[in-house]
Every structure is written in C-alpha cells, then in structure tokens.
Amino acid sequence: MENQVLIETRRLKKYFPVPAGFLHAVDDVNLKINKGETLGIVGESGCGKSTLGRVILRLHEATSGDVLYDGMDINNFSADEMRYMRQNMQIIFQDPYASLNPRMTIGQIIEEPLKLHKIYKSADDRRARVEELMELVGLPMRSYNQYPHEFDGGRRQRVVIARALSINPQFIVCDEPVSALDVSVQAQILNLLMELQKKMGLTYMFISHDLSVVKHISTNIGVMYLGQLIEKAPKNDIFNHPLHPYTIALLSAIPSTNVLQKSKKIILKGEINSPINPKVGCRFATRCPFATEKCTSGNPQFVEAAPDHFVACHRWKEVADGTLKFNM
C-alpha cells in the first residue's frame, strides 16, 4: 500500500531581515510527512524548528518555496481559503501557562474555536462537543467552570490539546509540548498524544530537543542544524545508522540512565556558525572533525543515501562504509 503524503515542503525558506542582513531561520527544507505518521524534528536551540512549524502552518509567510497540504499548494491560497484550511491544521505550544487566557473558563477556552469556525449551530451542540473533548483528553467534567490558574502544567496541556482537537484537525504541529512538564506528567501527555493519534488518525510534526522523547513518539526523525534539514530517516535508521557527523555527535551526547554500560561521548570542538548571512559550504564545517576543503567551498546536497534515508554531507559515503570514525 502506498503511503499517502499529507504535508510536503519544497525548497522552503524563511529569512528574517535583521540589521546585519538576513537571518536564515529555515533554509531550503524539503520534507514529506505521511498521513497518520509523526515526523520528529530535533536540533539545538535556534536551529529553526519552531519557524519551520510556523511556516508550514502559514503562521509565518515563507520567503520562498512551497508548502503542499494534501497536494494543494497552500502558499497561494487566499485569506478565505486559508481560513477554511486552518481547520485542518493546529499547533500546540510548549508553554501551557502562556497559551491559555486566564480570564476564560476551561469550557470557554475549548469552545472558542468551535464558535470561531461556526461548526455547530446551537450552544447545546457546542457544549456537548466540549464535554466529549474533555472526556477524550482526560479532564473531569467539574473542571468545565474552573480557570487555568487552578490547574497544574499537565492539566493545562490537556486543555490546550482539547482546544486544538475541537475542530477535527488532521495535522498538528506539537512544538515542545512536554518540555515544560515534569517527567512523571510528561509521560501522561505523551501517552495521550499517541492514543489520540491512533484513535483519530492524526498526523504530527513533533518538535523537541529531547531525543528520547522524539524517538519514543516518532515514525521518522528529521535533524536540523542552523536552518537546514541535514538528515531525515525512519527513527531506527537515525539511531542505528546515522550518516551525518552532527547526528552522530548529537546521539552520543544524550545522557543515558544505563549504569551498567557507560557510553562514550563525542565532545565537539569549535564555534557554532552564525545563521546571519551564512557563508557557502556545510554549516557544520566549523565543528566537524571531518571537514575538508570541499566542505567549506560547496553546499552539500540533501540526497537519498538509502531508501527513505536522506542526508546532506559531502562525506556521507565514507561515514556509511566506516572509513570515517570519531575519535572518542
């Protein structure tokens, strides 16, 4: 059975004008997300994960490139078409404290999108839908008239999820949805998101800097570095056969709870490049122990090194066949 692509980006770019020139927040990103799957996006702070999510949802206008939703190029949609389209796409943010209006009750917050998109005619229908959603995300009915400040982080995030689901979206960008939560509560929300995906066939783009969380929830994983997608593959391929030197270093740096087997860490040297007016060449070259003349003079292409496994590195073949190894 052929997987159906729900989201596709082609040469997607987002440059922010800054006093010193242009900040390349998203630079030439090509990716596909299949229906019902989760694409995890990892990378260090400021590498462009949130901006990518926002540009895909058109919360930011792209500088250039295309975003296709179910084959339709939404960058050319009119405001009206886009409003209709928005029902299919939602975003969940990291901070459940900032994203809820403190003066509205939980019931009102979840109901708001239903009113906005005029999905139900009567208040009774809306109320019934809100109650259905509250049950779905595990909120007790008595919270209907409570206010966000009475809730802890985990329950607030449930409210945020219920609100995002209210208008039956197909695609949800989850931007660090559990990063602000304690681990015990984080597990509650991760389980909820996975359960909802199964039940409703949702498609996620899941942004996080926590690689174990991303591995747990994703189908495919994309690694970003300074605005670019540098590697993307099914999660087990990323973890078992990483091809980009940055991915390899990143994976080795994850602190492990395994006390029987201490893992060796790759300690990177060198400074991180600036995303403002980046020079040609691989953006990781300043920190890459394998960088050569070629790496600083030409941009590596994002190529399919193995089925579904994409990488942008001049020397990926030598990494793949074991010629290049990190000194640990």
């Binding site: 681990v183 509560v185 690689l211 709870t257």
Partner: peptide, 23 residues
Amino acid sequence: GLFDSIPKLDDDSSELIPIEGAI
C-alpha cells in the same frame, strides 16, 4: 515511577507508565 515515566533509548517499544496526578 520516575524510571517508568521516561522513554528508554534502548527500548522504545515499552509503554510509558506515568505517575498519576501531580506533586
């Protein structure tokens, strides 16, 4: 509970078992 709540890198098939409620 803390150990059961965190995803394990070497075993991602295992289900996360959260601690109910909050501190």
